[in-house]
Simulated scan of single mutants.
Amino acid sequence: MFGGRGVVVALCSTALAASSFVGAPATQAAGLIVCAGQESTTYDPGLTLVPRLTHLHSTSEYTCSGRPGETVKATGHTVGIAPEASCLALDSPRVLERVRFADGRESEIRYEGSALRAAGAHEIHLTGHVVKGFAEGAEVTRDVSLLPTSLPTDCATGGVTSATGQGQLRIAF
Rank of each mutant, 00 (worst) to 15 (best):
Q166T: 14
Y62Q: 10
T75S: 12
E139M: 08
S150N: 02
T71F: 15
E84S: 14
V160S: 11
E112A: 10
A29G: 13
A18V: 06
R142D: 10
V99P: 12
V22M: 10
P93E: 13
G104Q: 04
A82H: 00
G46H: 14
T157G: 06
R110C: 02
S40Q: 13
T153M: 15
V72M: 03
C35W: 04
V79Q: 08
F134M: 05
P148N: 04
G66M: 04
P93M: 15
A36M: 07
L32T: 03
V140T: 06
E39V: 10
S92Q: 08
A29L: 07
T75N: 14
G80L: 01
S40G: 07
E139Y: 07
T42P: 00
A172L: 04
R100Q: 12
A74T: 00
A36L: 12
R142S: 06
D44N: 12
V9L: 02
T41V: 09
T41S: 01
T127L: 03
R170G: 10
P25F: 09
S13A: 13
Q28A: 14
Q38P: 06
G31N: 11
S92P: 01
P83M: 14
A18C: 00
A30Q: 12
G158P: 05
E112D: 09
V22A: 13
I109C: 13
G167Y: 14
R52L: 03
G37P: 03
E136V: 06
V130F: 14
Q28R: 11
L88F: 06
A121K: 09
S20M: 10
A17I: 07
E123F: 09
G4S: 04
T71A: 15
R100F: 01
A85W: 10
R5A: 15
G80M: 04
A24S: 07
G3V: 02
D91R: 09
A74R: 07
P45G: 08
L116M: 05
L32Q: 04
G46Y: 11
A18L: 04
A163E: 11
P148R: 00
G120H: 12
L116Y: 05
T48M: 04
L90C: 12
S145A: 10
A10L: 01
G4P: 05
A24D: 09
G23D: 05
S92I: 06
V8S: 02
G165L: 02
E39W: 02
G69S: 01
A89K: 14
P152N: 03
V9D: 07
V99W: 08
V144T: 15
T42R: 00
R94L: 06
K132F: 13
F173V: 04
R98D: 03
C87A: 11
M1I: 05
